[in-house]
Computed example of a mutant assay.
Amino acid sequence: MRALLQRVLEAKVVVDGQVTGEINHGILVFLGLGKDDNFEKGKKLIDKILKYRFFDDEQGKMGWNVSQADGGLLLVSQFTLMAQTQKGLRPDFGPAMPPSEAKALYEQLVDYAKSQFKNVQTGIFAADMKVHLVNDGPVTFNLEIE
């Protein structure tokens, strides 16, 4: 399971001209699910994301998590994060979880995130999403749970 986190000043997801999720400052999370991933791994990852300190505190250091920074969380499913890219010139999506399983797990993780944090927005699983963001810093981290 992989998550690409971007600290943003604002972010939104648009599907068919409609905004499906939008936050002001906070974390935009692109979430990739692999064949061996499960809800327990996902809970650990969501908990880590919510506790991860990469917002500036009073001293200007990365000391605050998203809650302390009064930010939002925008979760976007992105199977391409699971691609193997070491060989050749074309990504291999074999490690990604099959779509029907991934959708169910993604929805469970969204529900879990919403039970743990007040401001959670989302994209739409497997939709053609247009993601708009203003990266803050830029600050981007890749988190993995195995």
Rank of each mutant, 00 (worst) to 15 (best):
A11N: 04
A11S: 10
K12G: 09
V13Y: 03
V15K: 05
D16Q: 13
Q18G: 03
Q18C: 04
Q18L: 14
V19C: 01
T20M: 15
E22P: 04
N24C: 10
N24E: 10
I27K: 01
L28F: 15
V29E: 02
L33F: 00
G34A: 07
K35V: 02
D36S: 08
D37A: 11
N38D: 15
N38R: 04
K41V: 00
K41W: 06
G42M: 01
G42A: 08
K43T: 04
K44E: 10
K44D: 09
L45P: 05
L45Q: 09
L45E: 08
I46Q: 05
I46N: 03
I46M: 07
D47R: 13
K48Y: 04
K48N: 13
I49M: 09
K51G: 04
Y52T: 15
R53W: 05
R53N: 05
F54A: 03
F55D: 00
D57Y: 01
D57F: 02
E58Y: 09
E58K: 07
Q59W: 03
G60Y: 04
G60Q: 07
M62E: 03
G63W: 09
G63H: 06
N65C: 12
N65W: 09
N65G: 11
Q68L: 13
D70N: 14
G71K: 01
G72E: 03
L74P: 02
L75H: 08
V76F: 11
